[in-house]
Computed example of a mutant assay.
Amino acid sequence: MTTSIEPELVRRAAVGDPTAVSALLTDVRPGLVRYCRARLGRVGGAYTTADDIAQEVCLAVLKALPRYREQGKPFSAFVFAVAAHKVADAQRAAVRDSAVTMTDTPLERPDAAPGPEQQAVATDLARRLSVLLQRLPDVQREIITLRVAVGLTAEEVGTILGMSAAAVRVAQSRALARLRTLAGSGLDEVAA
């Protein structure tokens, strides 16, 4: 998703134009999925939960769209604000519902997914990276997520966060330097 969503497209979608709504969701959804995956990570080797949250964000945006009013910020700032709230809700729910449910249904065909060892390594790496990211200030964490995971430009992130592109680049540089310091020689120093 880019911050250059046409205001006219948003206006048409807000009044219920089905073509505009479809085009708007087509533009918004890929960035939302990347954002949610970056913030929530994988569970059991899959991004199912993050993808579900991205879908919830799309539904929340659609529900709020008729009441959306231009307030001097791009539409993407509104979308990512909704996403940040949904991600926070999902994280709180995950802490509350940390019970593990096992399914022992046999597979009918060979599983092409990574094996247990690869899943464990990937999950451990994701957990370690998540721990590192949590040690950054909120703004730096958002900048890294939006720039690296979602792929937005410094200008787009600046518009969303109300910063200049130069300030975003400086904050990103500081965040990456802090991550390098925290990581030390690899990710071995991150507490398990």
Rank of each mutant, 00 (worst) to 15 (best):
R11Q: 10
V139L: 15
A192Q: 12
S22T: 13
A46P: 00
R109Y: 15
A23P: 00
E6L: 11
G44D: 12
E155Q: 13
P137D: 15
A14D: 05
A149R: 11
G41C: 00
G16R: 03
D51N: 13
L40M: 06
E70I: 03
V28S: 03
A83T: 00
V28D: 01
I5Y: 02
A23T: 07
I53K: 02
G151H: 09
G41K: 03
D27G: 07
G115S: 02
L125E: 05
E117Y: 10
A50M: 09
A154T: 01
Q172K: 10
L59A: 13
S98H: 11
L129H: 03
G16F: 06
L32R: 03
A81D: 11
E70R: 14
R141P: 03
D111P: 07
L40T: 06
D138G: 11
L62A: 10
V95M: 09
S4V: 02
P110S: 12
R127P: 00
A99L: 09
V33T: 10
A77D: 01
D104T: 13
P137N: 14
L9S: 01
A171T: 14
V190D: 08
E142T: 04
R127H: 08
E6V: 04
R29Y: 15
G31R: 01
R180C: 11
L161A: 10
R109P: 01
L176N: 12
V61C: 08
D17A: 10
A183P: 11
D52L: 09
E6G: 00
A149T: 03
R37V: 10
E156G: 12
T26A: 12
C36V: 05
R12N: 13
T19P: 00
Y35D: 02
R96G: 02
L179S: 07
M1L: 11
V150H: 08
A165K: 02
A192P: 09
E56N: 06
R127G: 06
V28H: 04
T123H: 08
V82P: 08
A165P: 05
P18H: 04
L9N: 01
V170A: 05
T123S: 10
G44H: 09
M102V: 14
V139A: 13
T3D: 07
F75T: 04
G151L: 03
